[in-house]
């Protein structure tokens, strides 16, 4: 139920996948909106507080996700050989970009050595700080990698729909239904 098999994803991976999808889209929209808020907007301080807190939680979840992915079986890719290679590279890029976006965001707020308060619940400590022009450079990386992640995620969604509508295989279904992973071949 919770674990993956070579036929499908377990419930744990499915939940993390969809939670991450919602969080990534939400954080992108929130980040875009909040950076244009004016000084007198009631959300001027609150929106970044949500953005930082959500981002730090997603970073924790993503670290757990990567570990889980490495120690669990991965369902087999489906499609033409080229599609399989493209899928492997695409998924690797998504993981890499996710980490780059999250870590660069963390490096903006912690650039002067202060930690990040996560929902006033705990403080994620600063680690790497005080690099020359750290906040501005991390900010550039954050912006471009966030865009790259959105674009490649769109490609990821289109590819999933291609499996569903054109190939009519269970690639999309197995990211929704954990029972696929327990089906016998």
């Amino acid at each position: 139920m919770w674990c993956n098999s070579i036929r499908g994803w377990g419930l744990f991976s499915i939940l993390i996948h969809w939670l991450s999808a919602i969080a990534v889209i939400g954080l992108f929209a929130l980040g875009w909106w909040m950076t244009d808020l004016t000084y007198y907007d009631a959300w001027y301080n609150l929106a970044p507080w949500w953005h930082r807190s959500m981002g730090m939680l997603l970073l924790g979840v993503t670290a757990l996700r990567v570990v889980w992915r490495l120690f669990q079986p991965t369902p087999k890719e489906k499609g033409a050989p080229m599609e399989k290679v493209a899928a492997k590279i695409g998924h690797l890029l998504i993981y890499a970009l996710l980490l780059v976006v999250l870590i660069s965001g963390y490096l903006i707020s912690t650039a002067n050595g202060s930690g990040i308060s996560v929902f006033d619940w705990f403080t994620a400590p600063a680690t790497l700080s005080g690099l020359s022009n750290q906040a501005s450079i991390a900010g550039e990386v954050h912006w471009y990698s966030a865009w790259a992640l959105m674009i490649i995620s769109l490609g990821h969604a289109l590819a999933a729909f291609k499996h569903l509508v054109i190939d009519r295989n269970d690639v999309m279904r197995r990211m929704i239904d954990p029972r696929v992973s327990r089906r016998s071949a």
Partner: peptide, 17 residues
């Protein structure tokens, strides 16, 4: 100019933007 420090990384980033 980019060596500006007001003890608040996000504010410094914004001032330098």
């Amino acid at each position: 100019v980019s060596s500006l420090n007001s003890n608040h990384a996000e504010r410094d980033k914004h001032i330098l933007s």
